[in-house]
Simulated assay, not measured.
Amino acid sequence: MLVIRPIMASDYSALMQCAEESGHGFTSLPVNEEMLRNRISHSETSFAKEVVSPADEGYLMVAEDTETGEIAGTTAIEAAIGLDAPFYNYHLSTVVHASRRLGVHNTVQILTLGNHYTGDTELCTLFLRPPWREGLNGRLLSKARFLMMAEHRHRFSDVVFAEMRGVSDEEGNSPFWHWLKENFFSIDFIHADYLTGIGAKGFIADLMPKLPIYVNLLSKDAQAVIGQVHDNTRPALRLLENEGFSCRGYVDIFDAGPTVECDVRNVETVRHSKRYQVEVGEHESEQQCLVANTSFRDFRAVAAPLDIDDKAQHVVLSQQVADALAVTDGDFVRFIEQ
């Protein structure tokens, strides 16, 4: 059984392993000891903090295999981004160049640099190691964050978004960045991505073109990947789309991967999750659910069968599941049926 829980300082080695395995283009998991230790420390502080409204809190969690003690993956939420450092993106929009006198009407797309998501909540750092990519594990790692949002609504902004990893090859070469590099940056994609991951973002403001970029002036390869996702990211994108997320034309400034967003109130798991009281005991139900306790500091989430009584707003769960969630008779859990 996988249990989603807040990260601890003792998880550093496992987090570094996830960073190494995640590969190029995974900005929020840089292979950098200082940055990863700082993220762990910041997360521990954030989970312990009393919050009235979202600010710079970062909640980093891991998926622990209860049978082996191994860390199977990681997932995170940034409560409100862009408050202490600019958060850049491109917006893809359409403009018309027309002359009635000449009978000319051209529609072209442009990319405009901006900070649209400042103050919004970001889903990030979702990585599940290959041996555990089966069953409900991927859904649990992603949807546990929505169960947390539903239960602790005041800690998060009204809009939640996720940057999806864009197209790059096995060596980390991005067609979109290749065009930017040739014309503006003169540094490799991997290096630029790494600098962003460790918080050294000053070069973006210094070197990024300030005026809108006409898409038809980009190379054909660069044009082709705008708004497209890396093959390894497609399952995560489908899951978010099923939750109600969609792209409103915003893309990443490095690899042009799409940014998807949703009003928290409209996220399917938030809308349809239920908060019922617990009874610990044996049952024969095979109704699979993603279920979380209602604690924040000691948040836990698992995938498990529950015996659900909607009329009484009551669930029966096994002792094993209760132990994993750190709940007892009379406590409450929040869950979503699968």
Rank of each mutant, 00 (worst) to 15 (best):
N32P: 05
E20W: 03
Q109L: 04
H272G: 08
G199D: 14
T121L: 04
E67M: 09
G135I: 02
V264S: 13
D206A: 15
R37L: 13
M148C: 09
H42W: 05
D193A: 14
E21Q: 15
N89P: 03
V215R: 00
G135Y: 00
P209R: 08
G114N: 10
R248V: 11
V160D: 03
I40W: 02
V95F: 09
E282N: 13
V229A: 14
L2W: 08
G58T: 08
R100A: 15
G197Y: 02
F146Y: 08
E279C: 07
T294N: 03
F146T: 05
S318T: 15
S99P: 08
A301F: 01
S10K: 03
T118S: 13
V321D: 04
L102F: 07
N32V: 02
D158W: 08
F254K: 06
L36F: 12
I187V: 04
V291W: 04
S168W: 10
R153L: 09
T121D: 06
E44S: 00
V270D: 04
F254Y: 11
N115L: 03
S219G: 13
E243M: 00
N266R: 07
A9F: 00
K210D: 10
D307S: 14
A98F: 01
I40T: 15
I77D: 05
L128M: 10
G23R: 00
N115Q: 08
H178I: 11
G172S: 11
K143G: 01
D309M: 06
T66P: 04
H91Q: 14
V62W: 01
T66Q: 12
